[in-house]
Nucleic acid binder design. Structure first.
Lengths: 338, 338
DNA sequence: TTTGATACTGAAATCGATTTCACTTACAGG
DNA sequence: CCTGTAAGTGAAATCGATTTCAGTATCAAA
């Protein structure tokens, strides 16, 4: 069933059918009725591809994620779908599985008129990325990393990590370990580590390289790095750069017969959904990932509507969640002295 | 840049450009070179929308999910993306946020030539769903629920739940509670409950309605239902129909000063990624959701290739994970008698 | 030299919509 | 009665590709 068939059945021209479908132009009442009747009876739905071609708008936005089966990514995507729905847009999702070449490939592919805009959850952003993205002419917004020249939706990773360390220091810890991640991911790998180092310096604490471990994003990696830290030093607290890392670390500690937080405190970053149900409930910082997605989408649609790209930087709120996995050494001492 | 421009630059017709792009038909060596040179120089990428229109193939499949920010859904989608990539297909994802009317809407919308096939993670499947889906002519596969007349990728929920109950019974439990979910979701709400009831009967245990609670899919709901169970009866074990429910239940038990599994055992179903890192590590059954997604996608592509729909039923493997949240009463008694 | 393949090419039709443009009709105002 | 404007309509062009089809060139076999 195409528009021509409907036209024939209703005894009008395709142009008239188009006019009633899109509610523009003049159509006499009786013809409109006739067309509507036919449409209803045959359940006509226009071919969206043909519409896209003619209108030069696909009503789709592309979303490039490093790994969709990740709590962070799926929450961001959740947010995007929510505002996309309001704008009557669909999402094309491209899952790169952490392969950077794929990002480039998808960036190219999606921009071939397939989508009206792109939201990219960047991990590493290479020069090639930037150059390509800049040449694309359709709106692109970055989520999770600030990228020069693009609208970027980020969390204030530096401040978040800093506040977490502050809390740990305020609890009386002096030997504070760190479990991080490859610096190629600047938001997670670089910024959070820098905050750790800076804050320690500011507090007059020395930074002990033996108390720093670098892993990847897996729980197992958190376990391994914690084990390594244990052999190299004697931290009373460690901050992990993600909750998964923290959970791995806690697991390792338990396996070594150590209590968290009584023997060693552990803090995460990210506030995974189940974090508060752990024992001990994980002290961490909550990032509004769904909000990031929503804000990113709003920016894309703004840019689509205004037909021009800009490069804002939006910082999304976070909230430090003080739970039970970081012990307050001072009150512990008080308790013991009784 | 369109094909006509490339043609002009290379001094050939659009037809020839098309022939070199798609590598079919005859093109003289020198012209081919010329065209390729121009393509390379201007970085020409064809308009995918125009291709789709002409070819009557969008190279996109639609994926309808109840909620993307859910571990189950995102793992399924992960699997789909993996095999879609092999077939050079993109995913359009539609997130219904658990609203059934949205499922219908998206089913209609996506099928307007926008996608070559649809994968649907069904929760409730109404008669309207079936009728509409049946009328669509493009391949549709259902994941998670068996639906008459459609290829369905399911887990053997009945057997999985049954084995879990078996394990609990084998551990010497007699008062076994159950936390379930609305029966509108037949796989999770009906089948798993039926397995529980059947197995209890078979084992000569009576089914105590006071020990059955029905909630929704949230952790909080698990907490609440557990609390209700506690006031109504005295279970020594409870099986929850999802891990989240189980986690909520455990949390409730802890809040009431009860130890899991020493005072009450709790089992889940689903094996959430973090399940094994809980304390106690959750006894549950692992479903291969990513595999479901992959198999679903493979079936869609088969059907697309053969240009005909079928209605297989594929049962994906599961694995019961015996961890620490269900206590063996017999060994406990032995221990006490020492 | 003629015939018949085979290689090669581009004009034009096509996919299914939208929109411009030219044209008709109806009607109010002078 | 004439005229100008608004309402209404459909033929045809258009979006950017692919493919058929008709036609040309080349060359081996008869």
């Amino acid at each position: 069933m195409k528009i021509k068939d409907i036209a024939k059945l209703a005894g009008v021209s395709p142009a008239t059918v188009s006019r009633v479908m899109n509610n523009n132009g003049y159509v006499k009442h009786d013809k409109r009725q006739a067309v509507e009747k036919v449409i209803r009876e045959v359940g006509y739905q226009p071919n969206e591809i043909a519409k896209s071609l003619k209108n030069q708008k696909s009503h789709m936005i592309g979303v490039i994620v490093p790994k969709i089966s990740t709590e962070t990514a799926s929450r961001v995507v959740d947010g995007i779908t929510e505002v996309a729905k309001q704008h009557n847009y669909q999402l094309i999702i491209a899952n790169t599985n952490l392969q950077i070449e794929e990002e480039i490939k998808y960036l190219k592919f999606l921009s071939n008129k397939l989508v009206d805009g792109i939201i990219m959850m960047a991990t590493e952003v290479t020069a090639e990325h930037k150059k390509l993205a800049q040449s694309l002419a359709i709106p692109i917004v970055m989520v999770g990393q600030q990228v020069e020249g693009f609208t970027s939706i980020v969390h204030d990773d530096y401040r978040a990590a800093k506040l977490m360390i502050d809390h740990i220091i305020a609890c009386g810890h002096k030997n504070i370990g760190f479990i991080g991640v490859d610096p190629k991911d600047v938001a997670v790998g670089q910024v959070r580590k820098q905050a750790y180092i800076d804050r320690l310096h500011e507090a007059g604490l020395s930074v002990d390289l033996d108390l720093i471990g670098i892993g990847d994003f897996s729980i197992e990696s958190g376990y391994k790095q914690m084990e390594a830290l244990l052999t190299r030093g004697k931290p009373t607290a460690v901050m992990a750069v993600t909750d998964h890392l923290a959970i791995g670390a806690i697991h390792c500690l338990h396996d070594h017969g150590l209590s968290v937080p009584n023997d060693v405190s552990v803090a995460g970053l990210g506030d995974v959904k189940l974090a508060k149900y752990f024992s001990p409930p994980l002290t961490t910082v909550h990032y509004g990932f769904k909000t990031s997605g929503m804000v990113a989408a709003e920016h894309v649609f703004d840019m689509i509507k205004q037909n021009q790209v800009d490069s804002d930087k939006v910082v999304i709120d976070f909230e430090v969640k003080i739970r039970k996995s970081v012990a307050n050494l001072k009150t512990m001492r008080d308790l013991q002295s009784l």
